[in-house]
Computed example of a mutant assay.
Amino acid sequence: MSEHIQFQRPDGKTASGFYAEPAAANAPGIVVIQEWWGLNDQIKRVGKQWTDAGYRVLVPDLYHGEKALDEKEAEHKMNDLDFGDAATQDIRGALQYLKQGSDKVGVIGFCMGGVLAVLSAMNNDETDVAVSWYGIPPEEAGDPGTISVPLQCHFAEQDTFFPIDQADAFEEKLKAANVPYEAFRYDAPHAFGNEDWDYYDAEASKAAWQRSMAFFEKHLKG
Rank of each mutant, 00 (worst) to 15 (best):
P22S: 10
F18P: 00
A167S: 12
A74G: 13
F162I: 11
A117P: 13
S2H: 07
L151R: 11
Y200D: 05
P138N: 14
Q100W: 00
A25G: 06
M213K: 15
R185H: 04
L62H: 02
A27Y: 08
F18N: 03
L119T: 05
P60T: 03
A202I: 01
V32E: 11
I108S: 05
F216G: 01
K175S: 14
F161P: 00
Q34Y: 11
D90Q: 14
D70W: 05
A176P: 10
P60K: 06
E73I: 04
S148L: 12
Q34H: 02
V149Q: 15
P22R: 05
W197A: 05
S16E: 12
A167M: 00
T127K: 06
Y55H: 04
Q210D: 14
P144E: 09
V149H: 13
T51Y: 04
V32Y: 06
K67R: 13
Q210E: 15
V105W: 04
K104C: 09
A27D: 07
R9V: 10
L81F: 01
Y200R: 03
E126W: 00
F7D: 07
V149A: 14
K48W: 01
D41K: 10
V131F: 01
F215A: 13
R56K: 15
L98K: 12
D103P: 11
S102C: 11
L151V: 08
I30C: 03
V115N: 09
A20K: 04
D165S: 09
L220R: 00
A208R: 01
A27E: 02
E71F: 11
G113T: 07
Y19Q: 08
K206V: 01
M1C: 13
D85A: 14
A23S: 10
E182A: 09
F216Q: 10
V107Q: 04
A207K: 15
G17L: 10
Q100C: 02
E66H: 05
E157G: 03
E217I: 03
L39P: 01
D201G: 04
N124E: 13
F215V: 08
Q42M: 12
F170Y: 12
A214G: 09
G142E: 11
A121E: 10
F216T: 00
Q166F: 09
K77R: 15
D85L: 09
K206M: 08
N40P: 00
W133M: 15
G65F: 01
D41Q: 14
G101S: 15
V129I: 14
H219I: 04
G54A: 14
G193Q: 05
Q8A: 15
